[in-house]
Design a binder for these strands. Structure first.
Lengths: 225, 225
DNA sequence: AACTGTGAACGTCTTCACAGCG
DNA sequence: CGCTGTGAAGACGTTCACAGTT
């Protein structure tokens, strides 16, 4: 895992930056100019020391005795996460979930525009979902090039997911969000994040058995308050 | 048999058990009776030592020189995860995502039955989705009691999510899968897992910027491959 | 010989506690 | 004084390497 510059940001920190970002966004327009690590921690549901350490990886732009300038911090996090850029996305597999994702307005931060939809089912091809026409998955390479796709969302059945991923990688896509249940093999340099509903439910099931235990998964997760 | 006193299973292990379970399921009916940690690791996309250590927390039921009996292992993992039981689920918030989840056949393991749907929008109440009639969210407490709901899925806008969670907790629900973007405050003893699409995309965006970096997320979390 | 089970080493993440600055 | 930034300690997770078992 090569790191290009001296400033290596731990993975755990990266996965929390979006939470801080959201909290900060919700605090703009409230008249508040600064926010303390304590307050930010409370709103994001984490420990204050963790907030300070996380932010210190981006540089030290808090003011002692005062806190962090909200606007400035937002800007810095956005820059670090690449939210100042436009990332055209394609969704592959327009079933229930794929269609819901296509329509999902809550993709939150701007910059993630769904620019194309693809499906293997020829009876779906040509239909419109969220103002986009579904294209045949056989055209995936062409689509990625035409739309300069950088992020792909796979919402196909698991049986197709590896093939789709291979095609995407071939077409130069470097980031994949995978909703299919299996693991994807991709070359180094391609990032994959997985969202698996069955897995989440099974983990909850475990903690349900062990009740009275406030534990939960942390990775993406939420801590018990 | 190993030390059997403290059977505490690390959280990281719990979050991988569903993956092993899925892989094992896919290997039933292939004539194979046993599987080695090496093979299981390869299929699950993890390190073999990790597989052995993870499974050793459940007890030691591999056979040296041979591997693990697939059927037996499946049974043990299912028992540990509580997949032998029935967990009635309610989905709150039947928008695009909630409806897709209601229709989602891929909830994978049996046992997670969606038994009720609720929404705050009165124009949706009474409509049928996935053969279930949408009920008013004001009835949530009644619904949970009537259906003996153990797991709730929140797919409402963030603004409603905390209220919904409070009601669910009040009604005795101990496990929540949260698709809304914010954090939920819940008492100890209630498990929350969060799935946030915007967060996932933002994390991918980060690694997109730092390209050439072979990093990726693991099951839920973030773990370099 | 093949493979598991596990102590020990190592690396990463979290938390504490306080020095340092405004 | 209030709050950040951070070294150091500790908890947790992963990986190695090999003893032990069939």
């Amino acid at each position: 895992m090569p790191t290009e510059s001296g400033r290596r940001i731990p993975e755990a920190t990266v996965s929390r930056l979006p939470q801080y970002y959201r909290v900060l966004l919700e605090n703009t327009g409230t008249g508040l100019v600064t926010i303390s690590s304590d307050r930010l921690a409370e709103l994001a549901g984490v420990n204050a020391a963790k907030v300070r350490k996380d932010l210190s990886y981006l540089g030290s732009f808090g003011t002692r005795g005062v806190g962090y300038d909200i606007e400035y911090l937002l800007h810095e996090i956005a820059r670090e996460l690449g939210l100042t850029q436009d990332w055209p996305c394609v969704i592959v597999g327009i079933g229930n979930l794929g269609a819901a994702l296509a329509n999902y307005r809550g993709f939150g931060a701007r910059g993630f525009r769904v620019v194309a939809l693809a499906d293997a089912d020829s009876s779906k091809v040509g239909q419109k979902v969220a103002d986009l026409e579904i294209e045949p998955v056989t055209e995936l390479t062409t689509i990625c090039e035409r739309e300069k796709v950088t992020i792909a969302i796979i919402a196909t059945p698991q049986s197709e997911s590896q093939n789709v991923a291979d095609t995407l990688v071939e077409a130069g896509v470097k980031s994949i969000l995978n909703f299919a249940s299996g693991m994807l093999s991709v070359p180094d340099g391609v990032a994959v994040r997985k969202v698996d509903l069955a897995t989440e439910l099974q983990i909850l099931s475990f903690y349900q058995l062990r009740n009275g235990n406030g534990n939960n998964g942390s990775a993406n997760g939420t801590g018990p308050s």
